[in-house]
Amino acid sequence: MPLTDLIEQAFAPATEALRGDNIPGAVLGIVTADGTRAVRWAGWAQIEPEREPISRDTVFDLASLTKVIFTTTTILRLVEQGRIGLDDPLTVAIPDLRQYDMDAAERHLTFRQCLAHQTHLPAVEPLYTYGQDPDTLRAFILQRVWRSGPPVYSDINFMLLGIAIERITGTPLIEQPLPGGFTFRPDPCLCAATERCTWRGRVIRGEVHDENAFALGGASGHAGLFGTIDAVLDFARSILDGSALSAESLKAIRTRESDKRTVGWEGFYAGWHGGDACSPTTIGHTGFTGTGLWLDFERGLAWSLLTNRVHPTRHKDTGIMPLRRATGEAVIALFDQNRRS
């Protein structure tokens, strides 16, 4: 069975979600390590203020996929270049981090700890409510006495990593070079719409949905990247075939730093968002706007489901978790069946 036939069947959970008006639109892409791919799409890129159909070329706000596609990959390449060490403290790149307290816990955080979410930093903070001057907000992030707690999945970790990338490269995140199909500055007319934002007073389209990333200038280490399904699949294939990173870096993103986390990514566990049919070495990540990417190394298979599930509001049960799981399980079941036949 060719991938084009397989994807028609694997898209069935998304079709049901679209039929039930749980999500406006969806694009599913599958790619193998040898580059074979298939893409299926349906629904709407925007339903208000007026309807516009989705397409293969629709540009999505990738949300927290920014963490793995851009930030993690960039940090690991800087390690490969010898410009930093994975176990170096952030202060190697950001010497003014908590500069008024040389014993502050933040000054001891390493790149590895932030990438693997093994820090004391909180999950999220409404930084945008403190103002919208990006330079001042960056200074606030660096000097804030953060409340301490157990390790959690934290946007703050990746905000710090984004600032480190800017310091090391001397280039603002929004101006960083990106592979084709990715951008921090999309054409709104090409984008899937996200939320009707009460803070900004409009339907968000072509600007980052995440309020903190918006206040930081449109791009941050945790959010701000936009891309098409084919750009995401190109990235996934480059990880699967080993061309994106060195062997040591690939080992890092596949090796557990905790029960659920590797360097940058989340590793398979029972009940996770990628479905229980994944091989144990599968890694994946999701984005708040309704995006997701999974790489099953044993099968040489990756798939990405991109939706705009927060359009026009996040305050609705869209069933995104069961949709992601059902899609992953369908992709793998059909792929395995195809290999056996």
Rank of each mutant, 00 (worst) to 15 (best):
S246T: 14
D234K: 00
K251A: 15
S238I: 09
A252H: 05
I239D: 02
G264F: 03
D234H: 08
S246A: 05
E248S: 15
S258A: 14
S258P: 11
S238V: 03
A270P: 07
V232D: 00
A231F: 04
S238C: 11
T255H: 05
A231W: 03
D259R: 06
F235N: 00
E266P: 12
K251M: 10
W265N: 01
R237Y: 09
A244S: 07
L225V: 00
L240D: 00
S246K: 06
K260E: 11
Y269R: 14
T228Q: 02
F268N: 05
D234R: 05
F226Y: 06
F235Q: 01
A270Y: 14
S249G: 15
R254C: 05
D259C: 13
W265C: 11
A247T: 09
D241K: 05
L240K: 00
E248H: 14
A223D: 01
K260Q: 15
E257D: 14
F226C: 02
S246R: 08
A270Q: 15
F268Q: 04
E257G: 12
L245H: 13
R237P: 10
I229M: 03
G242N: 08
D241F: 14
S238Y: 03
A223E: 01
S243Q: 13
A231R: 00
S243E: 13
H222Y: 07
W272G: 10
A244M: 14
G264Q: 02
L250H: 14
D241I: 09
T255R: 03
Y269L: 12
A223V: 08
R261I: 05
R254E: 08
G271A: 12
I239E: 00
E248N: 15
G264P: 07
I253H: 09
R237S: 09
F235K: 01
I253A: 01
K260L: 14
I253E: 07
A244W: 02
S246W: 08
R256K: 11
L250Y: 13
G227T: 04
R256H: 12
R256P: 06
L233K: 02
A236I: 09
G264D: 07
D241C: 15
S243G: 10
T255W: 06
R237V: 10
E248T: 15
R261H: 12
I239N: 01
L245A: 03
A231I: 07
I253T: 01
A247Y: 13
G267K: 03
V263F: 02
S249T: 07
R237H: 06
L240W: 05
F226Q: 04
G267Q: 04
K260S: 09
R254P: 12
G242P: 10
L250W: 12
F235H: 05
E248V: 11
A247H: 11
H222R: 09
E257R: 10
F268D: 07
E257M: 10
S249Q: 08
V232S: 00
R254F: 04
G267A: 13
R256V: 10
A223C: 03
S243A: 07
A247G: 14
D259T: 08
A244E: 15
I239W: 02
I239Y: 00
T255P: 04
S249H: 12
L240Y: 01
L233I: 06
I229A: 02
D241A: 09
E257S: 13
V263S: 06
L225C: 02
R237A: 09
D259W: 12
K251Y: 15
R237Q: 11
D230C: 02
